[in-house]
C-alpha cells in the first residue's frame, strides 16, 4: 500500500516537473531561436490550441458538436477591428467588447438551437455560421467580401496591439493559452465541469438528477463563444487583415475542431496536443509541397481524422493515457 502511495506521489511530482520544464522551455524558446518562421509556427500552435480549447468546451465537454465556431471567432475579430478603425479604440478594449457582443449574438442565435441534439445541432450550426458570414460578406460598411485591412499605426505598441517583431505576439499568445488552460483546469474540477460531462454522457439522466441542463448548456455556449472571440481579436491583430471567408468560413471552423478531435475532445490537454501535432504537419507540407499542392495538409488531416475516428475514438490523448494505464497496471502486477 505504502509503496503504491509513494509511487503515486512521485509520479505526480514527475508530472509537475515535466510540466514546469515544458513551461520554461516555451518561455525561453524565443531567446534561443531568432528564426521568425519558428516563431510563426509556435504562435500558430498556441493560436489553434486556444481556439480548439474554446470549441472543446461546447463540443467536447457538453457534446454539442459545432461546425460554426468560425462565426464566433469572426465576430470577435470584426468587433475589435471595426472599433479600432472607426474610433481608434485599443484592440484590448475591443477584445472585451467582442466577447460581450459575441456572447449576445451566440445566445440569441444559438439558444433556440440548444434543444436540438446530435446531428441536428451540428447541421444547424453550419446554417447559422453561413447566415452570419453571408451578412458580413454583403454589408459594405464592414468591408464586404473584400474584408478589412488594419493599417500599421505604430511600429510597436502594446496599446494598439501591434508589433513589428513576432516575439511579443509569441508571449501574448502563450499567456492567453496558459490563462485559458488554468481557467479550464478549474472548470474541469468544479461542479460545472462535472455537469457538462453528465449532460454529454446522458442528458435525460442528468436532468433526472437535478442538473439544470438548459442553464449549463447556455454557460458552455457563452464560455465557448467568448474564448473564440478573444482569439479572433488576436487573429486580426496578428494578420492585420480579416475577411468573412478567412475568419468565418468553413476552413477556420473546421480547423477550430481538428486539433481537439485528433488530440482528444473533452479532455484538458487533448486540443493542445492536437495542435502540437497538426500545425507542424501543416508546416512541413507547406514547406515541401506548398507551391504545387496547396491543400496537401488537409489531405493528411482527412486521413488522420478517419484513422483517429476508427482506431482511437478518444483521440491521441485518450489512446496514450489508456496505453500508459495498462502499462502501469501490468508493471504493478509484476511487482
Amino acid at each position: 500500500m505504502l509503496r503504491i502511495k509513494m509511487l503515486r506521489s512521485s509520479l505526480k511530482s514527475k508530472q509537475l516537473e515535466l510540466l514546469l520544464m515544458t513551461l520554461i522551455a516555451l518561455c525561453i524558446a524565443p531567446l534561443m531561436s531568432k528564426s521568425t518562421y519558428f516563431l510563426h509556427v509556435m504562435i500558430m500552435i498556441f493560436f489553434f490550441a486556444f481556439a480548439n480549447n474554446a470549441w472543446n468546451i461546447l463540443s467536447g465537454y457538453v457534446g454539442l458538436v459545432s461546425f460554426g465556431h468560425g462565426a464566433f471567432l469572426g465576430l470577435g475579430a470584426y468587433t475589435s477591428t471595426l472599433l479600432l478603425l472607426n474610433f481608434g479604440v485599443s484592440p484590448w478594449i475591443g477584445m472585451i467588447a467582442g466577447v460581450i457582443l459575441t456572447s449576445i449574438v451566440a445566445a440569441a442565435l444559438f439558444l433556440p438551437l440548444l434543444k436540438l441534439s446530435g446531428h441536428f445541432f451540428a447541421l444547424s450550426t453550419i446554417a447559422v455560421r453561413e447566415i452570419i458570414r453571408l451578412v458580413f460578406e454583403y454589408t459594405p460598411y464592414v468591408g464586404g467580401a473584400m474584408g478589412l485591412t488594419i493599417p500599421i499605426i505604430a511600429s510597436s505598441s502594446l496599446y494598439y496591439f501591434q508589433f513589428s517583431s513576432k516575439i511579443p505576439y509569441y508571449y501574448i499568445a502563450l499567456t492567453l493559452l496558459l490563462v485559458q488552460i488554468l481557467i479550464l483546469y478549474k472548470m474541469e474540477r468544479s461542479k460545472v465541469g462535472y455537469y457538462f460531462i453528465a449532460i454529454r454522457e446522458n442528458e435525460e439522466t442528468a436532468k433526472a438528477l437535478g442538473v439544470d441542463v438548459k442553464r449549463y448548456k447556455i454557460i458552455a455556449l457563452v464560455l465557448s463563444a467568448s474564448f473564440s472571440a478573444v482569439i479572433g481579436t488576436f487573429y486580426a491583430q496578428y494578420f492585420l487583415y480579416i475577411h468573412p471567408n478567412s475568419t468565418m468560413g468553413v476552413l477556420i471552423s473546421v480547423e477550430m475542431l481538428l486539433s481537439a478531435v485528433i488530440g482528444g475532445s473533452g479532455t484538458l490537454l487533448g486540443p493542445v496536443i492536437g495542435a502540437f501535432v497538426l500545425i507542424p504537419v501543416e508546416t512541413v507540407c507547406r514547406v515541401y509541397l506548398g507551391g504545387m499542392w496547396e491543400g496537401f495538409h488537409l489531405v493528411i488531416y482527412g486521413i488522420l481524422l478517419i484513422s483517429v475516428s476508427i482506431f482511437a475514438p478518444g483521440g491521441i490523448y485518450g489512446k496514450a493515457s489508456g496505453l500508459l494505464e495498462t502499462l502501469r497496471s501490468k508493471w504493478r502486477k509484476g511487482k
Binding site: V254, G295, G302
Partner: peptide
C-alpha cells in the same frame, strides 16, 4: 459508435476527397 465519431469519419473523407480533387 457515438454520433461524434460518425460525423468526423465522413468529415475526414470530405477533406480527403476535396483536396485530392484540388490537386
Amino acid at each position: 459508435e457515438r454520433m461524434v465519431i460518425q460525423v468526423f469519419t465522413t468529415y475526414g473523407l470530405l477533406l480527403f476527397l476535396r483536396n485530392i480533387a484540388t490537386f
